[in-house]
Simulated assay, not measured.
Amino acid sequence: MAKRPTAEAYYAGAYWGPREETPEECAKRTASFLNLLAPWDPLLAEWYRPAKSLKDARMHPLVPPDAATLADLFRSGVNRERGGPAIEQLGFTFWFDNGGPDADCAALRITCGAYSEAVPNSCVMTLPKRGPNADRLQTAHVLAGVVQSMALAWDPDWCVSTSWDHRELLSDEGRTGTFVGWVTYLSRRRGSVPPLPAPVRIEPVEAKGTLIVLTPERFTVVNPEHVALARRVRELLARAGLMQPVTP
């Protein structure tokens, strides 16, 4: 196995099962999400339509969000066979970023409106890898805010924010599935979260579900205590029946 890099890169993702929605409904949720994100960090208040250059992108901001524009972008991202009709049950996919340098930029990829059990709906944010933006965003406070915003806007079954290295470690062990990251959200539809060991923090997200923050310091796979804590919390949540897959 290749040696892992010293600096870990992080992401946040929300995932939910089949839910048929129109481009307009997906746009409304996206607009809500972008508005909820904005107060958490200046970088999260700037998003631009896909373009050939940064200069072109900055001519087409997505914030403040316009529902009609977002609906058109989702509509153009319908899944289809080349030259064939739209595959409506696979929903709509739309991706964009905030126009910064590659290593210090955040990007969003959204799949919404899918009602096939083969493809989950998702909203995945790739976070900056290094630089001043990364330093600000890679904190429990901000990532909890990002996951909370995802939960409120998308009403997902499960959200997670952790490092790609952590996900890779679990994948190597054949345990990716629904797992526990640095920050995790579980919908109330799954049941009640049991008591969890310190230093884990548990918070309600309105009446929708529960936010779980493993540790106030940066979670990293090079810290065996962090990895062990994530495994222990997942075991406890699995016993409570909360870690079932998003799609059957």
Rank of each mutant, 00 (worst) to 15 (best):
N133I: 01
L73W: 01
C123Y: 02
V146F: 02
G241Y: 06
G131T: 11
R75N: 13
A2I: 05
R4D: 12
L214C: 10
S116F: 02
Y185A: 01
D172Y: 04
A144Y: 04
T22A: 06
L196P: 08
G91Q: 09
E20G: 08
P39I: 07
P42T: 07
W164E: 13
E81K: 03
V205N: 04
A27S: 12
R189H: 11
L229A: 11
R189V: 13
A57V: 09
V146N: 04
R190G: 10
V160L: 05
D172E: 12
H166A: 04
E46N: 11
T176D: 12
R75F: 14
V193Q: 05
V124A: 05
V124I: 09
L237M: 12
R4S: 13
R109W: 12
P23I: 09
E8D: 10
K55A: 15
F219H: 05
P132F: 11
L137E: 03
L152W: 00
Q89G: 01
D41W: 00
K129E: 08
A31R: 09
E81V: 10
M59Q: 14
T139F: 00
E168D: 11
D56C: 06
G177S: 14
L127C: 05
T178E: 07
A118F: 10
A51P: 06
R80I: 02
D102L: 12
C105T: 10
A14M: 08
